[in-house]
Amino acid sequence: MIVRIMGEGQVALSESHLAELNKLDEELLAEMNNGDGPGFRATLQALLTKVRELGEPLPDDSLEPSDLILPSPDATIAEVQELLSDDGLIPGP
């Protein structure tokens, strides 16, 4: 699957990693619902770092359709809420 991190680019990521990423996504949702700004920021960074670690960056000139779009590292809670689906940022199992 192709994942876009807004403001950074795209990575190719195996769907086998979705369960691992979903744990961070659930944590992020809980922090958003509780108004935990520092926790939200830390978990968002952890989620994006994990995507970068597990994914293979696509060349900058590659324009593949994105299967998943994640917020930029400096996104606010309100901006992330706009990207949410019923499953959060990462599709559930």
Rank of each mutant, 00 (worst) to 15 (best):
A19I: 06
R41Q: 15
L21T: 06
G7N: 01
Q81M: 10
D74Q: 11
T49K: 13
M32L: 13
E64K: 15
D67Q: 09
L89V: 06
P71A: 08
E15W: 02
L13H: 07
L29Q: 14
A75R: 10
D61M: 09
A19Y: 02
D60E: 10
M1Y: 09
L83M: 13
L58C: 08
P59R: 09
L83A: 04
R4L: 09
T43K: 12
N33W: 04
L83V: 04
A78W: 02
L44S: 04
E56K: 12
G9E: 03
D36E: 12
I2M: 04
M32K: 04
P38V: 07
L28H: 06
D67P: 01
L44K: 09
S14W: 00
V51S: 05
N33P: 00
P91T: 08
F40T: 06
L54A: 11
N34M: 12
E20P: 00
E20D: 10
G55Y: 02
Q45T: 05
I77K: 11
N34P: 00
E15I: 12
I2Q: 05
P73G: 14
S72P: 00
E82L: 12
D60F: 08
V80P: 10
E64P: 02
P71Y: 03
L48F: 06
G92R: 15
F40I: 07
G9A: 05
L29K: 12
R4D: 07
L29R: 15
S14P: 01
E79K: 02
G55V: 04
I2D: 05
P91A: 03
P71E: 01
A12L: 15
E26G: 12
E79D: 11
S85I: 02
I69V: 15
L70N: 11
L58T: 04
M6K: 14
D87V: 05
I90W: 01
D87R: 09
N33R: 15
M32Q: 04
V11E: 02
D25K: 02
S66W: 01
E15G: 14
D87M: 09
N34S: 13
G37H: 11
I5M: 07
P59L: 01
G39F: 07
G88V: 08
S16A: 12
T43N: 06
D87T: 11
E64Y: 11
L47K: 05
A30E: 14
D36H: 15
S72I: 00
E20N: 10
T43E: 05
G9M: 10
E64T: 04
L18M: 08
R41N: 10
A30H: 14
K50I: 00
K50H: 01
V3Q: 09
V11T: 03
Q10V: 09
L70M: 03
H17W: 11
Q45F: 10
Q10N: 07
F40Q: 03
D60M: 01
D74P: 00
A78C: 00
A19W: 00
P59C: 05
E15C: 01
N22C: 13
V11R: 12
G7C: 10
G55S: 10
Q81E: 15
A30T: 13
L24F: 02
I77R: 12
L44I: 06
V3M: 09
I69P: 00
L29C: 07
R41E: 10
G9I: 08
E82P: 01
S62R: 15
G7M: 05
L44E: 09
A30M: 06
I5Y: 02
N22T: 00
D74C: 09
G88L: 04
D61L: 11
L83P: 08
S66V: 08
D74H: 14
E20M: 07
